[in-house]
Amino acid sequence: MSSPEILLDVAHLSTHFETRRGVMKAVDDISFRIHEREIVGLVGESGSGKSITGFSILGLLDPPGRIVTGSIRFKGQDLVGLPAAQMRALRGKRIAMIFQDPMMTLNPVLSIGTQMMETVLAHDKVSRAEARQRSRDALGMVGIASPEERLDAYPHQFSGGMRQRVAIAIALLHRPDLIIADEPTTALDVTIQSQILFEVKRLAREFNMALIWISHDLGVVAGLVSRIMVMYAGRIVEAGPVSSVLDQPAHPYTAGLLAAIPAMTPKGMPLQPIPGMAPAPNLRPAGCAFQDRCRHADAACQSTPPTGMLGEQYWQCAHPLIHTSHKEPA
């Protein structure tokens, strides 16, 4: 069996926001690849640039945000600078996004059926009867009971978890090659979160879709993804197979994230939060942006941090934690 082709190739992407306080480097020279049918996690604290990365891929940046350098190749086609009409034809059909707040997808004054059918008709020339059938089938796939009746309901008649299932169903309508999920389970309780994670993973495998799952919680993505990319202050500081990154993190920031997860801390041991706060996007120091919060930092961290490889694992750090475990504090 041949190896999966590269579906998405992001190279040296930088997305900046020009404001009165200066240039905010939300995404600062990141590169990564996503293969067909691959499920990848993009993790980091709030403000690390995860969501802006997703918005950049989909061309959803609002002024003053703009891509200043880099390329985003989807199936070989560079999306940066693509005409708006071509981007609209691609967005939702070949690349879809699931937002953190389902109401960013759903219109409160239109029925669920109307919204789903319009989504189908926006990309495919089919009858309204077929569009309704596809909408009904999509609701059933994500576990919504009595899908025919629910098509006539409105968003306020659904619970938060059900609204998120509807948003997932809309993303699945065209069987896209890639779905970007932007923390879609953050506001849900643990039980509903677990159900949705299971359903999304099942559907991605069933329809041969690639998935980028954005999250601030390493624990959430651990059982979902095959590979993890850790983002801090606009940069990807570590990436590799999920088992390698979780069992032997190479970057002190990754180790700090793991040490702060209750489920991954030995019983009776205190949690070890990362001290301080991430620097503002316009006030990041030269060199490693994590240096002010890292107990390993020295003069070498004040210049551009070196990159390296540990097996399949990539890191960007002057002092990679090659022989430590996640129990070591950052």
Rank of each mutant, 00 (worst) to 15 (best):
P4I: 09
H12K: 15
E18W: 14
R21H: 13
K25V: 02
A26M: 02
I30T: 01
R37C: 10
R37H: 07
R37N: 07
V40R: 09
G41I: 01
V43R: 10
E45N: 04
L58F: 12
G59F: 11
P63D: 04
T69F: 09
G70C: 10
I72G: 02
I72V: 12
R73H: 06
F74E: 02
L79V: 04
V80S: 01
L82Q: 00
L82G: 01
P83G: 02
A85N: 13
M87G: 01
A89F: 10
A89W: 09
M97S: 07
F99E: 00
P102W: 08
L106F: 08
L110K: 15
S111V: 11
M117H: 11
E130D: 11
A131Q: 06
R132C: 06
S135D: 05
D137G: 07
M141A: 11
G143M: 03
P147L: 01
E148M: 07
R163S: 05
A169D: 05
A171C: 05
L172E: 03
D177F: 14
A181M: 07
E183H: 10
V190R: 00
A204H: 05
L218T: 05
V230K: 01
G234M: 00
R235Y: 02
V237N: 01
A239D: 12
L246E: 03
L246F: 12
T254C: 06
L258G: 05
K267W: 14
K267H: 15
G268C: 11
M277Y: 10
R284T: 03
A286L: 15
G287C: 07
G287A: 08
A289S: 01
A289E: 00
S303W: 06
P305C: 12
L310N: 15
Q313S: 09
